[in-house]
Write a protein that binds this DNA or RNA. Structure first.
Lengths: 151, 151
DNA sequence: CCTCGATCATTAACCGGTAAACGACCTGAG
DNA sequence: CTCAGGTCGTTTACCGGTTAATGATCGAGG
């Protein structure tokens, strides 16, 4: 029922669907492009490092890495010095996706914000930043709804 | 990398996490509250009707309904006149959640938008509406990125 | 009356995401 | 040197979401 949560949820789903469709044209699933983006920036990171960079659990990265390894995008290799660690390396196929995927992502960004004036876009980013800050604060500070305002 | 998509994704995840934590305090999972909301409005709907109201697949509603039936929130019963149809009925437990869940959802809406002035809030809703419209349009009209502007 | 197509719900197989349990490995204190 | 505790990755079991295949039922035409 609440206005913002409802609109945000529907918008979020629609945006997600657009990104999903776009990335699927390159044989990827949504989320896999984020994992690739981290490795495009720097190769040979561990699942834990990738998870931290993506703000996701390590288990999630492991599962995705398994699928992407099977798909020929990644290579797994244990670290020689510390045998607990596993390092993820891009294959040529995984590296080849960088340019087209990043380009498409830029196009989506443009198309999806095309109806907004520069001022509107600026205000939207500002507002979303505030929402993001509030939300993350509410996650670490549980259930302060008894004191909504700080006098 | 794109500014908006990145910020939107992170914000979306944070907001989702807040809603998840809130609804979990009442023994629900995120999404189940939406299903309940439809039934709170009117009881005895079919999975297909609920799915259409939530903009979700019927299969998803069926799965959720199965779990919620096991949790004692719902009751399944086949329609007498048309035996293909199944109607979902709230139990007392399911109906009892309406007031606390809706109240908490309102509180979250307030808390999460507390840093925004009324004007900012208005602009945010307007911008999100435009984003939503663009995104849904891009879903039905695939790959018009070769003609970004309509001259 | 009977069949054939449309309309339902359901199931199974995938995804991304999570939390929890597990096991292998390193490291530092004794 | 040993061993206890911390740090990893992996596995398993959920949840919400999807698509595709299956199955039961209704309804209309012949």
């Amino acid at each position: 029922m609440p206005e913002f949560l409802d609109l945000h949820g529907r918008t979020s789903k629609a945006v997600r669907a657009v990104a999903e469709a776009a990335v699927r044209r390159h044989g990827l699933h949504l989320g896999q492009d984020h994992l690739l983006a981290v490795l495009w920036q720097e190769d040979g990171r561990t699942p834990g490092e990738v998870a931290a960079a993506l703000n996701v659990t390590t288990a999630n990265v492991v599962k995705a890495a398994t699928r992407m390894t099977a798909a020929g995008l990644l290579t797994r290799r244990r670290d020689d010095r510390d045998n607990r660690l596993v390092r993820l390396w891009l294959t040529d196929a995984g590296r080849a996706l960088q340019e087209p995927v990043e380009r498409e992502r830029r196009l989506i960004e443009e198309s999806i914000t095309a109806d907004l004036s520069p001022a509107e876009r600026e205000q939207l980013m500002s507002a979303l930043t505030k929402i993001h800050r509030s939300a993350t604060a509410m996650l670490t500070t549980p259930a302060d709804q008894s004191t909504p305002a700080t006098p």
